[in-house]
Design a protein around this nucleic acid. Structure first.
Lengths: 149, 149
DNA sequence: GCGCTATGTATAGTACACTATGCATTTAAT
DNA sequence: ATTAAATGCATAGTGTACTATACATAGCGC
């Protein structure tokens, strides 16, 4: 039973993810949106505000990762941070009109890339692909949770 | 048709890949092996030598990415670089005995993580997961190739 | 042989993920 | 009320990926 990269679930998953990311980056470049901005865009698309911690949880990234992403988004005039009057530790993040105006474009790009990626799959296979990914994610997340913290 | 992250092939693929990477990093940490070292380890496991370019191609990463990985591996005493006598531009990369001695451990870890990730899948579903990933990769790679270069 | 192109590496700059840690503020415990 | 624990954010350091670019050597055309 040789362990080649063609039969390693981890290797293939990583490879596919990198190809998705490359394509996304290329297609989003003209709009000034980076892939990591997307979870923030969608979470705040309704014009509301969230804290950094909430955004990190929704994007399933660690807090320092979200902090860096928000720094870049602030630099690019995509978000504003406003001190929470009720809790001086936290900041309320909101999208700027510039960012709000780009959401529909981003949605179109993401849909197009997903459609492209699943192009060679039967409709049933597409659902299966997503379902299998969700099962894999569930197992690995459970493992991640049950460490010590 | 709302585009939520639960139905986005790209988002789910990226998420699964990150969970794989985290688990891999954790389990490989004691042996001093980083995830990016693995394609190099497997490509040179027979004791042979390859150039940086060949290693990059096999790992499906860009040349500067492989250069950085090899720098870290050299720092960690996992590889040696020797000038190619026949072509003074290129270097022949070989594993050190230290690295060769860790391969079987790495193989065990990778197999264990793959098994864990696919634990909740039926045997047929496991094959399907790999097959679907390969199809997705093929489409995205074709897109990647056909840009201009 | 000379010069153009191709090839192999190196380097710089950036994005985005992680862990570890520190600081300020808030909440809870006594 | 004061101390202790928890919480939100920031920062530092690292790994791994990308593009763009520079440089040295190789190979080819003439």
């Amino acid at each position: 039973m040789t362990l080649s990269r063609e039969t390693s679930a981890g290797y293939l998953t990583n490879w596919a993810a990198r190809l998705f990311a490359r394509e996304l980056e290329r297609q989003l470049a003209p709009s000034g949106i980076a892939p990591a901005y997307m979870p923030v865009l969608f979470a705040l698309a309704d014009g509301g505000t969230l804290t950094q911690k909430d955004l990190a949880r929704r994007a399933a990234v660690e807090q320092p990762t979200m902090a860096a992403t928000l720094n870049r988004m602030e630099r690019d005039a995509m978000i504003t941070r406003r001190r929470d009057p009720g809790d001086k530790r936290s900041a309320l993040v909101a999208l700027t009109p510039l960012a709000l105006g780009k959401i529909s474009t981003v949605e179109r790009v993401v849909s197009a890339i997903n459609a492209l990626a699943l192009e060679q799959l039967e409709p049933a296979e597409r659902d299966q692909y997503l379902a299998l990914l969700r099962k894999v994610i569930a197992v690995l997340e459970a493992q991640d949770q049950g460490l010590d913290n």
